[in-house]
Design a protein around this nucleic acid. Sequence first.
RNA 1: GCCGAUGUAGCUCAGGGGUAGAGUACUUCCUUGGUAAGGAAGGGGUCAUGGGUUCAAAUCCCAUCAUUGGCUCCA
Length: 646
Amino acid sequence: MIKITLPDGSVREFPEGVTGLDVAKSISEGLARNVIAAKVDDEVWDATRPIKKDSRIKLLTWDDPEGKSTFWHSSAHLMAEALESLYPGVKFGIGPAIETGFYYDVDFGDRVFSQEEFKAVEDKMLELARQKSDYVRKEVSKKDAIEYFNKKGDEYKLDLLEGLEDGTITFYTQGNFVDLCRGPHIPNTGFIKAVKLMNVAGAYWRGDEKRKQLTRIYGVTFPKQKELTEYLEVLEEAKKRDHRKLGKELELFAFSEKVGMGLPLWLPKGAALRERLENFLKRAQIKSGYSPVVTPHIGSKQLYVTSGHWDKYGADSFQSIKTPNEGEEFLLKPMNCPHHCEIYKTKPRSYKDLPLRLAEFGTVYRYEQSGELHGLTRVRGFTQDDAHIFCRPDQVKEEFMKVIDLVLYVFNALGFENYTAQISLRDPENKEKYIGKDEDWQKAEAAIIEAATEKGLKTVTETGEAAFYGPKLDFMVKDALGRQWQLGTIQVDYQLPQRFELEYIGSDNQKHRPVMIHRAPFGSLERFVAVLIEHCAGNFPLWLSPEQIAILPISEKFADYAQKVYSELEDMDIRGIIDHRDEKIGRKIRDAEVKKIPYMLIVGEKEKEENKVSVRKHGQGDIGAMTLEEFSNYFRKEIQSELNKN
RNA sequence: GCCGAUGUAGCUCAGGGGUAGAGUACUUCCUUGGUAAGGAAGGGGUCAUGGGUUCAAAUCCCAUCAUUGGCUCCA
C-alpha cells in the first residue's frame, strides 16, 4: 500500500500502482469523468499512469491551466493522427500546446496545405475522437526509437531524438498514431468534443531561418461544443477592437502605399489624441525633474560608429544619406541616445549636477523587415517618449524606482491594469552577443531586480532578452487578439557613457563615469495609441477624446444658437463638432454614437429659450438639460476623476 | 526576409472568360423633424500594377507591389 496525499491535506491509502483516475473514482464518478491528468509531486502525469510510491496528488480537470494544456497537447496528437490518415507520408516536427490551443509543425513535402482543407481535417479529428482511443504511454530505448523513426522516415523526430538521453524516452500511441512524446496526455480521445483549426503559417524547423520551413497548423479544441462557440464569440469581439479597424473608422491614422510601408500618417483626430498624450507626459516629466531637449532627425555616421550601433545594426538599417561632399554620411536617427550623450558632453558636469534627465519626444526610423510590420504596433517611423538619465552609480536604483513610479502613474491615468513587467537579462551562455564588462552587467542586473522587487511589480524574468548594451525592464501589455506588446521600457546602460567618454567630477575632485538609464513610459506613441485604442475599444477617456462633444441642432433654425454654444464651449477648452446636416435628430444621435463621441448636446426650441443644452451621454442616453456652466462643471469633474484614479 | 491567404466605388463586401454590382458614404432636391438610420434623384471604379494565354481577361497563368496570419527579427 502507498500513501496518497490530496490537496486538502487528507491522506488515503491505495495499493501500489494506483492511478490518478482510480483515486478520482474513489472520490466520485463525476470527478472521474472529468479528470484529464494528475499532478503527482509537482509533475503532471497521465491520469492512467500507475503511481508506485507515496505521493501528493492533485487531480486536474479542464478548469486547471495544466489540465487545459494537457488537453490541447493531446489534441495536437489527434490532429497529427487525422493528418497522417488524410495525407499519408507527412512528417511531423513538434506539436505543443500554446496559451490557447495548440499547433503542430508538419512537413507536407511538395504539397501545399491551405485553409480549404481545414474542414476535412476537423471532421476527421472528430471522427477519431469519437472512437475514444486511449492514449497509451510506452517507455522505449533510444535505439528502438531511432529504428522506428528511421523506418518511418521522419527526420525531424530523429533530430529530436538526438537530444534525448536513453532511458528517458517515451512514445504515446492513440489509434494508429505513434509519437515521440514526453506526455502527459488525456486518458482517451473521447474527451475532445469540439475542434476548430484556426490558421496555417510557415515556421522554420527549430526556429532556424536556414532550415526547412514547415507548415504550422494552429487549432483549438474544447470538451464542449458550447465552449468553442463562446471562444469564437470572444475572438469576434476582439476583432472589433482591433486598432487597425478602429483607427480607420475613427479617422485616427492611415497608411499610404505612396508614402511607404510602416510609415503612419496621423489624421487630425489622431494627431489631437497624440498631442494630448504628449502634453500629459511632458507635464508629469517636468514635475519629476526632467529637462526637455530637441535634437535633429539625422546624425553623422560617426555618431553611430561611436555608439556601437553602426557595427550592430548598420547593415540592416536604412542606409546612410550621402551629401555632395565625398565621404560625408548621415543616418536617419534610429534612437535618440547618442544625441543626448553629446548634449551631456557640452560642458563639464559635477556630481552635484546629477542626475541629469534629458527628455525628448524623438521621432526615429528603423528598417523593420517587411513581414514584421503590423498596424501601429510595429512601424518604421515612430516617436519615442524618450529620456536619458545620467546619474552616479549610487543613484541608479533610486532613479530606476522613480521611473517605475512615473510609468505606473501613466498606466493608472489610462486605466491599464493588466500588464506584466518583464526583466530581460543577458544570456550567460552567449556573452559575445553583448558589449561591456561582466562586472557592470552584474551590477545593472542586480539594480533592476532590486528596484522591481521593492516596487512590488509582477515580474517575469527572461534570460537572453537583454539589449546588447544592458539589461532592461519592459512593461508588457496584450492587444485585443491576445498578442503581447512591449510598452514602457527602462534600461540600464553602462556602455554608452564609456563609448562617449562621459564624465563628471566627483566630490573627490576626480573624474568618474556616469551611468545612463534609457526610459520610455509609452515606449512609442504609435504603439501606445494602438494598445490604448484596443484597451478602451475606441471609447477614449474624456480628457483624451479627439472630439469630446457633438452639438446637435434639432433643425437648421437653431444653427445660430448651436454656433453660440460651440464658441462658448471652445472658450472653456471643450472641443468638438456641430452637426449641421439636414437630418433628423435621431439620425444625428446615431451617427454621434457610432463615432463614439462622449457627449451629445442637443439644442432646439426649448434649450434656446432657457439658454441650456440637453446632454446625452455616449452609451447611456439622455442625462437632462443643463446650462453651459453646469455642463462645464460636470465635464471637468469627470476629467478630474479620470486623471486621479488611484 | 521566409511560408500561406487576400487585393473589385471613400468604406464594408458580393460577383466572375463576353467589357461592373449591393449597402453605406458623397452631391442635389423634397422634408424643419425632439433622443440610435425620413424620402427621391444623381455622380463615382483602367476590378492593385506589369506581362502572358485567348477571337475576347476584372475573371485563367506568371511576376511585382501592398495588406494580412504566422515564422525569424526588434537598438
